[in-house]
Amino acid sequence: MDPLSTAFPAVGTSLLEDFSLEMTGKDVPKLDEAASLIPPGTRVNVTFLGNETLRMRLDAARAVKRLGFTPVPHISARRLGSRADFEQFLVGLRADGTGTDVFVVGGDPARPEGPYKDSLSLIESGLLQDHGVRHVGVSGYPEGHPAISQEALWSALRDKSAALAARGLDGGVITQFGFDADPVLAWIEKVRAHGITLPVRVGVPGPASVRRLMSYATRFGVGTSASIAKKYGLSITNLMGTAGPDRFLRVLAGGYHPARHGTVQIHFYTFGGLKATSEWIAQFRKDVLA
């Protein structure tokens, strides 16, 4: 039996009605193009890339709000050159009304460019709540991290959850994307076993070429064995073909149990573009909820 036929009536709202998307500061024209396909109020995360200026980041968050969505600006700890840089970004977000929700991450640089070594240091700085932030997203890694041990990852997630609670901040976890739903479900159970009750948004790649998906998987250390690729729907012999996350979502829906997994939602990484991802989601929602 197709797991969607029995599982989705119970979890359709959490998985499909409250998904989130991701974009870069350069994607504003693409967001404009896709806006009519995206439900009002959808959370749109705006990345914090090293080749983007403060103005680009602020403009992107402002565009998200202008189009009727909820901006979630990223803040990359190791890319911040100083406390003043951090405050300048937060002041700009607050002035634009786009800084209530943020996502904090350590960032790509191996060495901090300023005083913040990781996302926990941003939370512990006290600046987030001082500048009107109310909800803070943090990262989760169901398949581990190529440069961080499992022990360190679990310790960091527990510490961030506790730090948010201590400061009266709401929070949530967004996971790195993957191609196998089973280890994701198992990881979420472990999150709950660690006493972490934060909602989890499972990272899912939007439809994209197989070549691009494999490239991102290699870059981020995501497992892509031949068996996992086949399970997801990736054709190794046709790298120019396109793959979407429908199989992944079906398995996730079939294995999801609220009592064991708590609140679970979906976060789409738009590797194939905002419009392609939004069109895919709209059609998938139509097919599933018909």
Rank of each mutant, 00 (worst) to 15 (best):
A166T: 08
Q129A: 14
H131E: 00
I148V: 15
D118S: 10
Q150N: 14
D101Y: 04
S119R: 07
G97A: 03
S139D: 00
L127N: 09
E143H: 11
V105E: 01
D101K: 03
K160F: 04
S149G: 11
S155G: 13
S161Q: 13
A162P: 06
P146L: 09
Q88C: 05
K117W: 11
A156I: 04
E151C: 00
L127P: 01
H135V: 13
D159E: 15
V133E: 06
Y116I: 02
R111H: 14
V91D: 10
L128C: 08
I148D: 12
P109R: 09
V138L: 08
G114D: 01
F103D: 04
L122G: 08
D85I: 00
L169F: 04
L122M: 08
E151S: 10
G171D: 07
A166C: 08
D96K: 03
A165F: 01
D85H: 10
D130S: 14
L93P: 06
G172V: 05
R167A: 08
E151T: 10
E151V: 08
S121Y: 00
A165P: 02
W154H: 13
L157C: 04
P146T: 08
F86Q: 05
G99P: 12
P146C: 08
H135F: 12
V138A: 03
E151M: 02
S155P: 02
S119A: 15
L164A: 08
E143L: 11
G97E: 02
P146M: 07
L157G: 02
G114F: 00
F89V: 00
A147G: 06
L169Q: 02
V136I: 01
F103T: 07
S161C: 14
S125G: 05
F89Y: 09
D108M: 07
R167Q: 15
S155R: 15
R83D: 09
E113D: 14
S139P: 00
F89G: 00
Y116H: 06
A110F: 09
G106L: 11
L90G: 10
D118N: 15
D96E: 14
T100E: 15
G137M: 05
L153D: 01
L120F: 08
D96Y: 04
R111I: 12
L122S: 05
A163M: 09
D118H: 07
A163D: 10
G114V: 02
V102S: 13
E151L: 04
K160W: 05
R167I: 02
L93C: 07
A110S: 14
Q88G: 03
L120P: 09
S82I: 00
S149N: 05
G172C: 11
G114Q: 02
G144H: 07
Q88F: 00
E151H: 08
V136Y: 04
S125H: 07
D108E: 15
S139V: 07
A95F: 01
A152W: 00
L120Y: 12
